[in-house]
Simulated scan of single mutants.
Amino acid sequence: MAVKEILTELQSLSNEKMMAINTKAGAGKNQFGVKMGDIRNIAKKLKTNHELGLQLWNAGNIEAQFLAILIMKPDLLTAKQLDTMVQQIDFTHVADWFSSYILKDHPAKEALRIQWLKSKNKWALRAGWSLMAGKIARDAGELDLDALLKQLQKEMPKAVPEVQWTMNFALAYIGIHHPAYRKKALSIGEELGIYRDYPVSKGCTSPFAPIWINEMVKRQSK
C-alpha cells in the first residue's frame, strides 16, 4: 500500500470521541482520531516494512506516526535519524510509543540519553529522561543517584510539562528500586508536590511520587 492509500484508510476510521480524547491530551489538528486498536490492525496487515514506516513518519499525521512506529525496524535507524525523529514529535502519546517501541532497546540509547539530557528541545529532553528512568530501574551502577536527586529537586519545578512527566518517572524509580535513596526521593516528592492532585481512575496508581513509590514498594514486599 502507498502512503496516500494508508492515510485515506486512516481517515475513514476517524472517530469523534477518539479525536476529542487526543485533543484533550494535547494533539493538534494533525490527527484523524483513530482508535489504537484500528491502528494496530492496519499494522498487522502491513507487517514489518521499514521504508514505508519512514514515509509514514514524515506524513505529518499522528496516526501515521503511530503506525510507522509499529512497522519500522528500530535497529535500522541510526542515532542521527533518531535525533531528527524525536524532534519531529508533537504529541506526548507518540513520544511515549517512540520511547517504548523504538528507543528502549536501541543500541544507541546510551549515547542518545547523554546527548538528549543536554538538549533544549523538549521532546529530546523528554526522551532523555525516559531513557534515564529506564537506566535507573535496570542498570544504575554507574549513575550518581545522589546527584540525580539534587538535579531533579532543582529542575523539576521549572520543567515544561512534557519533560516534567518523565523526570517524575526518574524520581519515582530511584525511590522504588534503590532503598538507600528512598527516604530522600519521598522527601523531594513531598516537597515539590508535583502531581499531588493528579486525577486518577479507580484502581490506578497516582503519579504523585510518594504515593507511587510507597505503592510499588508495598507490592514488592508481598
Rank of each mutant, 00 (worst) to 15 (best):
P161M: 11
Q88R: 11
E155R: 00
V86L: 03
I71P: 00
S100W: 12
T205A: 15
P107L: 06
L56K: 05
F91D: 00
W97T: 04
S221R: 14
L67W: 01
A170R: 01
L76A: 15
K17T: 15
P161K: 13
Y181H: 12
E5V: 08
T78Q: 05
L103V: 08
T78A: 07
P199N: 14
M85L: 13
Q65M: 15
G37S: 04
G175D: 09
L56A: 09
I71Y: 00
K150M: 09
I6R: 02
L10K: 02
P74E: 07
D144H: 07
A111S: 15
G28W: 06
F32S: 08
G175R: 03
P107T: 05
N61T: 07
R138M: 12
K120L: 15
K35A: 13
Q220D: 09
E142D: 12
W116R: 11
M18G: 07
A108V: 06
E162M: 10
M36F: 10
P161Q: 09
K44V: 07
N41T: 08
D144Q: 08
K154N: 05
Q88H: 09
D197S: 13
W129T: 02
S130Y: 08
M156Y: 03
A43Q: 08
L82E: 02
I136W: 00
L148N: 12
V217Y: 07
S12G: 10
E5P: 04
L67S: 01
K150H: 12
K135L: 01
M72R: 04
F208R: 04
Q87I: 06
I136F: 01
K109Y: 05
K184W: 02
H177C: 08
K222W: 12
T23W: 08
P210W: 02
P157N: 03
L186K: 00
A127E: 01
